[in-house]
């Protein structure tokens, strides 16, 4: 019988520091591997275990993909000790991605908080690389301070094609590639005029969801026009172990991306 926990061993092609606390690992992609915004892989390091990590690279790049990892536990800690040329196990990709295709018919509003920019980055690259196919796109990105900003070297390229706004909760006055606003991400709604009738993609911590969804509802967004990615503890990634259960959904298999229409009646979803 096919073993769904079997991992594939892939080589680390490149390791770069990203922001003050994360690293981008470029991994060799197995045959047929596709990157979709919001999907994740289980990274397996024998002896340490597995951890679900979002894919964050440009989907048009073939044969390799990127994950951006902050050292936060045993597996990510061990990963940070690894060197270029060494191998890690992967299985996946898993999960339901952001419905990026909607952006071909509707304007998009991408709202990211902190590390939440990682799962949205494949969508941003997809739009930037195929700009003429998509309608108008805005990004609202909130981070704690300049040191937490991710993917800074991409901003010049992104802001030429997308209306991109950053806000910092507690700025330290460090120079950044583009001007940043001050305050939490919902403050951007006061200063930036939204495009007409957009679909929103959200990725960030639960507290951000509470405030952003409240704001979006005030602006008369339909529940079915708000998509958000949930974070949960995962062990199997296959909809069995129940660690990631939310209501009757499994975040690993039915999500991690859900519409607000699916989640709004579930206690504890955000």
């Amino acid at each position: 019988m096919k073993n769904p926990y079997q991992t594939e061993s892939v080589k680390i092609l490149k390791i770069e520091d990203e922001g003050s606390r994360s690293r981008i690992f470029t991994l060799a992609a197995p045959r047929g591997f596709k990157v979709k915004s919001g999907q994740f892989v289980e990274i397996s390091l024998p002896g340490f275990g597995e951890a679900p990590i979002s894919l964050c690279s440009d989907p048009s790049i073939k044969n390799k993909f990127e994950i951006c990892v902050r050292k936060a536990g045993m597996v990510t800690g061990a990963l940070h000790e690894m060197k270029k040329g060494e191998k890690v196990g992967i299985r996946g990709p898993y999960g339901r991605p952001f419905p990026v295709e909607i952006g071909k018919k509707r304007n998009l509003l991408l709202i990211a908080g902190g590390l939440g920019l990682e799962p949205l980055r494949p969508a941003i690259w997809e739009i930037v690389k195929n700009r003429s196919q998509y309608k108008k796109v805005q990004i609202f990105y909130g981070a704690c301070d300049e040191n937490d900003l991710l993917f800074m070297k991409n901003y010049d390229e992104w802001k030429k094609k997308i209306d991109f706004h950053i806000t910092l909760d507690k700025p330290k006055g460090i120079k950044t590639p583009m001007a940043c606003n001050t305050g939490v991400v919902t403050k951007l709604f006061d200063s930036v005029k939204l495009y007409d009738n957009p679909v929103a993609f959200l990725c960030g911590p639960p507290v951000m969801y509470k405030f952003v969804i409240k704001k979006l509802k005030e602006l008369a967004f339909l529940d079915s026009d708000i998509f958000l990615s949930l974070e949960r503890r995962m062990h199997c990634g296959l909809g069995v172990c129940n660690h990631c259960a939310v209501g009757s959904f499994f975040v690993c298999e039915d999500g991690p991306v859900f519409s607000w229409a699916e989640l709004k009646d579930i206690k504890g979803a955000i």
């Binding site: 024998p46 275990g49 597995e50 062990h235 199997c236 069995v240 172990c241 660690h243």
Partner: peptide, 10 residues
């Protein structure tokens, strides 16, 4: 009850 954890024991 069947919920499970997966962990490594090196």
């Amino acid at each position: 009850c069947f919920c499970f954890d997966i962990k490594d024991q090196p």
